[in-house]
Structure formats: C-alpha cells, structure tokens
Design a protein around this nucleic acid. Structure first.
Lengths: 235, 235, 235, 235
DNA sequence: GATGAATGAGTCTTCATTCAT
DNA sequence: CATGAATGAAGACTCATTCAT
C-alpha cells in the first residue's frame, strides 16, 4: 500500500507520526515547511517540482519514490521534505499550477476581447480550440491528475472548483446572447455543465490516445455539437 | 481509437507494485489458477469477487489488502490465490463483469426492437437514459475502474474496446438514418465518438457527485444536445 | 527521533500509517495481530520475545531495530509484526512477564506460610531477600524497563499497579500485627509506601552497579531499617 | 559505589543515536565549541539552555529536535552547535546545573550551622524537607534526567558522584554522633547509602505522581524511618 | 559571528505472494 | 484442497549535524 497523507487541511496528527512522545500528548511536532526566500531555496524548490513532474509522468505517482525525485532533482530527500509536507503535496502543487495554466489559456477565450457576440460560432470554435490546446500541455501530468481525481477528494474538489469557475464564465457570455434571443436553450446552467464536461472529457481522452485521431476534425465536430445545441440556426 | 489488446498473462511492466513477481523473464512460475468446476468452488470464487468489490469500494484498490478480501469472503488468502493470479486480476474480472452488465443494458437500447428509426429523438432519449441508468450500478466499483483506467493500459484497453463496440452499434443505426437523409452530419464515426464520450462522461461524473443534480433534467438536455447535433430538425 | 507508538489502548488511527485512503475516511485498516494457536506459531512468538530481550539488554530499546530482533530470532521482520503491533508492544509484554515473575517471587514471601507473625524480623528479612533476589533476574531488561518508566505513562501505570498490589499485600500482614499491638506506626499505608519504594529502589540500584557492593550486608541493613521503623523493639 | 568518571569528550559507544559522528576513531573533527566571553554570547547560551529545558520537559529528550530548541531560543541551529557539541551536551549541562542546585539546597542542611548534633531528629527532618523541596524544582527536567540515568553511563556517573558526595557529607555528621554514642548502627557507609537512596527515591517518585499524596506526612514518616534506623531512642 | 539550506543514513512498518503443513 | 504462517523487498519520512554564504 502506498503511503498517502490525508488531504492537507487537517493537521497531520492523525497520520504517521508514529513518533509521538507518550508522555505529553497533544503537542504535535509540526514540521516546519520551508518557505523559500533566497534564490538558492527557490531554485531547489522549483527543481523538485520539475523532477517530480518528470518522474510522475514516466512511472506514475505511486510508483515514484521520493528518493527518485530527489535524485532527479539533484538534491537530497531531506530537501524535498523541507519544501513539501509529503509526496502528495508535490502533486497537489502540480495540480494547482496545471490548472492555473489551463485556466489562463481557456479563460482568455471567454474574455470580452476574444469572445464575439456577433460570431458565436467562431467564438465557440476558438474556445474549443483553446481547451484542446490547453490539454495538450504536459499530458503526462494531466493523466496523473485524472487518476488522483478518482482517488482523492481534495484533487476532485480542486478540479471541480475550476470547472465551476469556468462554467460561470461561460454562462456569463451566454446570458448576453440569451437577451439577444439567440439561444435555443433556457436552462443555461445545465447546458453549460453538459457542454463543459463534454469538451473537457473529449480533450482529455485525446491526450491519452495514440495520436491517431484527427484532432482538428474532432474540434470542428465538437464545436458543431455545441453550437447546434446552444444557438438558434439563425444566430 | 486505440484499443491495445494486450493479452492478460504478461505482467504489466509499467504497473509496479501490483506484482512483485520474480524479475527473471521467461521462466514463469506457472502457478495453476484453478478454474472452478464444481458448484462449491464456483460459489467460493463468486464470494471472493463480491468481497473484493465491497472492499475496493469502501477503501479503494491500493488500500485493500488481500487479507481483507479473504477475511471478508470467509476464506484464507491462499484460496484467493488459488482462483486469481493476483489482486489486479480480481479487479480486472470485476471490470469485465461491470462492462458486460453495462453493455447488456446499453446495447439493448440499440437493438432493432428498441431503436426506432421513425423516432430518433425518443430513441436517443432512451439510450441516454439507459446509459445513465447503467452508470448508477455499483458506482463505487466504477469509480475504482476509472482510477485504474488512467494507471493501467490493460484497463484502458478493455474500456476502450467496449467503447469502440458501442460506437460501432450506434454507427450501424445512424447509417440507416443517413440513407434516409435524416442526418445533419457526414462523418458518422467522429460524431459518434464525440457523442459516446460525452454521454459516458456526464453519466460517470454524476455518479461521483453529491446527488445534488437533477439527473432527469440533465438526461433531457444531453439528449437535446445529441439530437440537435446529429439530426436534421425535420427528422 | 525514535518512532514510538502511542500507548496501546487507543486505536492506531492517530498514528502512522500515512497510508490512508483519502476517499473513505473513518475506516481504519486494523492490522490483525496474530494470536498463535499452532505450536509453530507459539514458538515463533516466543523466540521473538527472547531475541528482543537480548537485543534490548545489549543495545537498549531505542537502539534496537526490529530487523535486528528478527535476525536474532531467526525469522523475518514480517513475522515480528504479525505477532506484535510494534516494537513497543514487545517491550510491554516483556514488562508484564517480568512483573509477573517478580510478583510470584515476592508475593510468595507475603503468603500465610511464609510470613510468620511471631517472627516479624525474620519475615521482613526474608521478604527483603526475595525482593533483592527477584531484582537480580534479567537485570538488563529491568534497566530498560526503568528507562521506559520515565518516558511512557503506560509503563509507569503498569509498574505502579504492581507496587500498589504489593503494598496492599504488605498492609494486610501489618494489620494483623497492629491488632497485636506490635507496631510502632499508625498510618500503615504511608509507612508501607515508604518501605516498599525504598527496598525496591535499593534493589534496583544494586542491579545497575558494578557488583562491588555486599548485597547481603545491604539486605541486612535494609531489614533493620524497616524493622526499626515499623515494629516496637519488644515485638 | 560505582562512580565512573568518564571524561566528557569521548563519544559514548553504547549511546547511539545521540551522535552520528564519523565512525573513524582517532581523527576527531575538532569543531570548536565556543566559550562565551562577552555578555551577549553568554546570554545566547543561557537562552539556549532554557529553551532546551522547556522543550525537553514538554516533549521529552528524544522527541525534541535541535530545530525546536533553536526556534524557541530565537536563534539558528547553527548557533546552537556553536555553543554545544551536540544535543546530548545540552542535557548534560542541564544535569550538572540541576545537580548543583539540588546540592546547594541539600548540602546547606548538612553544614555545621544547619545540622544540630543536639537535635538529630530535627536535623534529619529538616534534611528530608530540603531533599523533598529540591526535588520539586524543575520536576520535568528531573524526569528526563532519570530517564537518561538508565540509558547513558555518563549521566549515571554524574548522578552517582553527587550521591557519593552527599553520602560523604552525611557520614561526616554521623561520625560525630557515633563518637557521642548516639548511633544504633555501626556500618555508617552502608546505612547512609540506604538512607540516601531511599529518601532520594521517595522524593523523586513524588514528583512523578499525581499530587494526591500528602507530602508533609510522607516527609514526617520518612524522617521517622531514618531516625529510628540510625539513632538510639534516647539520642 | 550568524544563518539556515542541505545532507543522507537510518528506521519502522506494510503487504503481495508463497508454500509447508 | 484449504489454511495461515512466513517472507523480505520496498518506501516514506526524520533529524542530528555540517558548512557555504
């Protein structure tokens, strides 16, 4: 069984620490996690994250040992544990970074400049393109993150919170179109939920597949699906 | 679509931790896996599978020990290993069974009797309903299976091969409608791929969520999405 | 820091194992501790205890690794952990056994047959002799146990409960002598507390010392101290 | 009595885990331990000792990390190692200080002014009172020191050397009383050994106990025990 | 002088799997 | 056939100590 720490919020008390002074219960050790201030520190922390991402992608999360991460980062295990509570915390940070990167790419397609109310079709197509593009970034890491999604509530929560935010941004644009009478659907939230999950999943599955698929054709078709679902034909 | 049909016997190199078998390749230990003939044997094997499914759902695959499975099944570890090559083989069989159950439910909706060319909308809605229904069966196990899907190529292959079969069945029906000029799309394979993945994912995500969603409303909307994507308005 | 598990009564939940399925909190793994029924089992467990006692005496508790214990017992670490929750549990059992052995020797000196009301001096001297004798058994182990006494409340509690029992047995004899007017003290409990602690400590310290002391002379003197404290001169 | 005066510098072979110093004997690393001259240095060293004492009392010696000590003292780990060879050296200094404090209190009761040959009973009672009082100082630290006493020969040696000195001081007083024919015992050394150990132990055990005991009553009884053991009734 | 980043050997414990009884 | 005792490789994590800055 691989050692996995509990989702972060809770204090470490209930885990590991085997090492509990029987004499004085209640006082937890509270290992300090170093917050890098100097350049050397920051560099070490960064190298750890990169090395971990590489290892996770190559061998998987459970199959990667902290020793391997350290070796690959060219540092010692001790240093890994100076910056991260445990192995899971490293992946959790990779999740946050990955989502931030995806969000930046995708949400740019929903901003006023990018989204054009007068060309919903084009806007949808571009958004789909952005999502597909974002999912091509660090596919190995994204695979690991999906795997954790089903195992670890905190990972699930983080991903869902991003999805919700994204759906919110989409609904905001749709609401304007609704006022213009261009929409075919009335329950914007449900429709957006469906559309967002569908596009997300198709793009995620593409990154798992052998590159046999014609990604552009699929993006085109996906846009068609979304457009026909949401918009009146004369929109 | 990738559908690696890697025959079971080979140990999965990339899936460590699942079998700490001797490293020497070639000379397989050749432990005989019992194929139960008598009723009592079959019953024992069955109990083991049920016990394993319960354990996996409660604690997860990695977190379940073979001892727990044996204890829950009321047998000894040794007996577990008499019927299954290893722990992973148990989950693999659960995967096959789960897919068989889902397939039975879903493919019934594609059979001549159930699918009505004169009512594509209704047929789609019923199919969606069947998929949603199928995914509600043993949601815990399905969660575990998705988790493995991202870790283990064989699990991925098995699932994809079901998807391909399902898509084939859908395409078969669509082809008739295409001949009748009722379809809006031309690339049936791609469209079906999109539709199948989307519906599958939405239904899978519903089983992970708190039961806050209005499943019927989502099924309705999902049907709308599919119908508008595939069919001419006058179909 | 050496890993020490919490005193046994509490469930393992708050400790170690790291390995907690994040998905389903609350369900603890509960490693089964094997209760040996067959002869082979019992023998393995016994060998483990002996090996552990030897190791602890030679190197100390913290300095002994479970691997060393296993190696010395001629078994594998896994087997050690099959019979004992953790390293501390082994020492705890050694504590219980040691106390049982000491108790048997010492309490025999307080039984009706051994204790003679008509010869309090002789009875005290014999009791002191028994205590000194008992403390010479496995002195290395007793040293380790004293060390734990100051670190671990459960060890302290076990030892104190033996002391209390012993004091009770002494008081029972003194009460008869009190009725016969032979005692010089009135607060039997306090006097017994003093006497028991003093003799115990002197005998414990002797086992730590180089064998330079004249144990018999000290036992004689200790008896004198106790007798003069408790009994009238004409008793 | 054994009083091994092992000079500090040598690393204690049997006390592992206290110094993971290079194994090569002979070529000592010769890290300079700073002897503070200036007031600020002395203050820093002092703060470190206080911080360490606090930590040790709260969590125990093994459970306290040098980082914790440094943090609590408001300095860096490096500085701790500038003033102390290692963690053990800190506790060793606390031992010396504690003993010095106890000695001051107790030996004052044996000085000509305090000890009154014409009132042995009162003098004994006062001495017992002083010992009990001394043991109430920093009980947490004293608990840690007792724990080390059983683990570390140097700690044992230091404590025993104090005991020997104390016993010497007691014997010096008793010898005068012996000349006055007031003593009941002839082997002063043995008797003093017994008495010193007994009182020491009773007072030490009181500091471990819940404060349920009537300390004064116990001190009274302990004095009675000693007096009746040592002195003629008409003394 | 002081700092605190880095080191890495060392330990406990787990659990899939085997095989003697 | 079933049992369950035994195996032992493997891995996460700690922390005393050093030393470059």
């Amino acid at each position: 069984m691989t050692a996995i720490s509990k989702p972060s919020p809770e204090p470490e008390g209930s885990i590991e620490n085997l090492s509990r002074a029987p004499v004085e219960a209640g006082l937890e050790p509270v290992r300090e996690i170093r917050v890098p201030q100097q350049a050397r520190s920051r560099r070490t922390r960064e190298r750890t994250l990169e090395a971990a991402a590489d290892c996770f992608e190559e061998r998987g999360f459970d199959e990667t040992t902290t020793d391997e991460i350290a070796r690959r980062a060219g540092i010692s295990v001790g240093s890994v544990y100076a910056y991260f509570r445990d192995k899971r915390a490293i992946l959790l940070e990779l999740l946050h970074r990955t989502i931030a990167e995806i969000a930046e790419i995708v949400e740019a397609g929903l901003a006023p400049g990018a989204w054009r109310d007068d060309d919903p079709r084009g806007s949808v197509r571009e958004l789909v393109g952005r999502i597909f593009h974002a999912r091509q970034h660090r596919p190995g890491t994204q695979r690991i993150l999906w795997e954790r999604f089903f195992k670890d509530p905190e990972f699930q929560a983080v991903m869902e919170s991003f999805e919700v935010r994204l759906q919110g941004a989409i609904v905001a644009n749709l609401e304007r179109l609704a006022e213009q009478g261009k929409l075919r659907i009335s329950d914007l939230a449900t429709a957006t939920y469906l559309v967002q999950l569908s596009i997300e999943w198709v793009s995620s599955r593409l990154l798992l597949s052998e590159p046999a698929h014609d990604v552009d054709a699929i993006a085109d078709a996906a846009s068609d699906m979304v457009v026909r679902f949401l918009f009146r034909d004369d929109a």
